[in-house]
Design a protein around this nucleic acid. Structure first.
Lengths: 343, 343
DNA sequence: TTGTAAGCGTTATCAC
DNA sequence: GTGATAACGCTTACAA
């Protein structure tokens, strides 16, 4: 039990050959006879030998390990992305180290430190809401570690990014609302220093402009990710003499809150008020009326992020510059909350 | 950029002292003067030195790394648990390696291999639905790696386990249903070789027996985690001449499916049919009628699992045998789907 | 207090 | 084909 771990030294001794040869045999080195490889491998499993990845990493410099940093593992979007990343990484014999930033810049920096210490080959990151600086990310690059940002990116830092088509999806959503006859469309957004929220806002604005709608300035609310902010903003807007007739939100949680408020105020959804959200949370299709939303294909985003690393960075199979950004097409899902029976 | 990583050798040279002394200074060794520690650390950050965890691990034998294996990262229960684990681990300066088994025994074995190779100090695992053997888990122990099972455990292997009070929670739930006047309570379960599902079934049976209810044998359905199985079973049961008047389910997804079927058959919930589930998924409180459920305190389970390791195993602060099992108390949440307005 | 040197388990380089 | 040997970066007896 507590006896020492079996190493290639033991194997070498057992088999009467040198350590280096055993190592080569185990690693399928081309200059080693197949028969010997078989013999070595057989004895290795018999003796219950397990390679020590730490030793190999130390020697080789690379660790076959990917670090992932997200705000919260248990937000459905992120857990889906991570699941997608894990799939691809395990197929490619890479290990995943996962950290949460809890949307704090400080914790994000700590996470990045940890990953550097652990010698990861690449970091996949979706930054904290607080993050406005990129110094910690530059640190990663300084240490010759690859970096891919996904979803929430820091603008001033360029490099590889994997993103949804946030702007155009938002544009489409708003056009869909307009098609349904909604004219006074309010926007409930997030912190604009984050690309994803800014892009959604821009898509919204573009559609509004294109269709020549006039929207009161106070119909546009930024930085409303917290439930309380939404409650306050929506209650105020819906109490106006001329209230909005639709809401486009950057999250489904916002949609849900607004739906509840509307119900409590006796406002009919979707007849009097249309609602369209983002993220396609599990609950969105289950409640009544069901909530229209934009599916971000989060698991696919995870797959693509990881594949981006393996195909374009690690194996350098393709040209770079053209591929520094990968866009994941969203799917727009129209449900009851935005579909008027043509009134 | 691509110049070599800064090591303690560089630091030692820069500072005109020996490597070992630098190492001690950085690690806060008591025999090193505080002033020197400060000087060394200052220079270290200036030169952008980052310790190489691989090297340290190799030397020390321990890696300050925990491996986690779950069926799916993006099931809300597991992502909550993982989030809880991560919190505690990062507080204790430990890194997390995460693997998914996709409920396959084979993939679980691979994951375990990976973790052994990576020299983790401990494995936290919730086994795959397929897993019936414990050989791969014994392998972990053979390599002197600690093991804690949580939620889904392999029975034949004893050792540390962190679990909900599944049996007694189920017992209570069924009693609550009986209090509401439900008498023909069906049970929709999971694979009984998994402790969690077996325990829930036992709690159900105990309550049924205690209250002397006579339940037709076909009201008890095992192994019904897939949606299709639930649809078939529930449709059949509800079409009987004497159908069940309540369902106790081991998951909220089953509850949801049953609710839909009831609605489509014109059966009133909760008046004609009571529904009670397990897991307290986000959607359970949102839909109408809202679904009664058992909250498993999943994040807390993650916290406790990790704390179990740090407090009882790593630091051996307390006696063992009494602590080989930790029970996380669930919370029973009664909502509309099981609350009759007393008819 | 401080330094020397061995060793953790691999793999890469060079030699035979 | 095969085997010595050094090196990866760090910690830790042991010395001084």
């Amino acid at each position: 039990m507590t006896k020492k771990r079996v190493t290639i030294y033991h194997l070498a001794e057992e088999l009467g050959m040198s350590v280096s040869y055993v190592s080569r045999a185990l690693n399928n080195h081309p200059l080693v006879n197949q028969k010997i490889k078989d013999r070595v491998k057989k004895r290795a499993t018999e003796l219950n030998y397990k390679p020590n990845a730490n030793a190999a990493n130390l020697r080789q410099g690379s660790s076959r390990t990917i670090g992932v940093v997200v705000p919260q593992i248990n937000y459905s979007f992120f857990s889906d992305v991570i699941s997608g990343i894990e799939e691809v990484c395990s197929q490619n014999n890479h290990t995943l180290i996962i950290c949460q930033s809890h949307d704090s810049y400080k914790q994000e920096c700590l996470a990045v430190e940890t990953l550097i210490h652990n010698n990861v080959d690449c970091v996949f990151i979706s930054v904290a809401a607080e993050t406005q600086s990129a110094t910690h990310l530059e640190e990663i690059k300084k240490h010759d570690i690859e970096l891919i940002q996904f979803d929430r990116c820091v603008d001033q830092l360029d490099g590889y990014k994997v993103l949804n088509d946030n702007e155009s999806a938002s544009f489409e959503v708003v056009e869909k609302l307009i098609e349904q006859g909604y004219k006074r469309i309010a926007f409930i957004g997030g912190p604009v220093h984050l690309n994803v929220f800014r892009d959604r806002k821009e898509g919204y604005l573009r559609a509004i402009k294109k269709h020549g709608l006039s929207i009161p300035y106070n119909f546009i609310i930024d930085n409303a990710l917290s439930n309380q902010t939404v409650v306050e903003a929506a209650t105020e807007l819906l109490s106006l003499e001329e209230p909005p007739d639709a809401f486009f939100n950057v999250s489904d949680h916002q949609s849900l809150t607004i739906l509840k408020i509307a119900k409590s105020m006796g406002i009919e959804v979707p007849q009097q008020l249309g609602i369209f959200g983002f993220a396609n949370e599990i609950f969105s299709g289950m409640i009544s009326p069901s909530l229209s939303s934009v599916d971000q294909k989060s698991k696919l985003m995870g797959n693509k992020t990881a594949n981006f690393y393996f195909n374009h960075i690690l194996n350098k199979r393709e040209e770079f510059p053209s591929l520094s950004k990968e866009i994941i097409k969203t799917e727009i899902i129209v449900r009851e909350s935005s579909k008027r029976n043509n009134s």
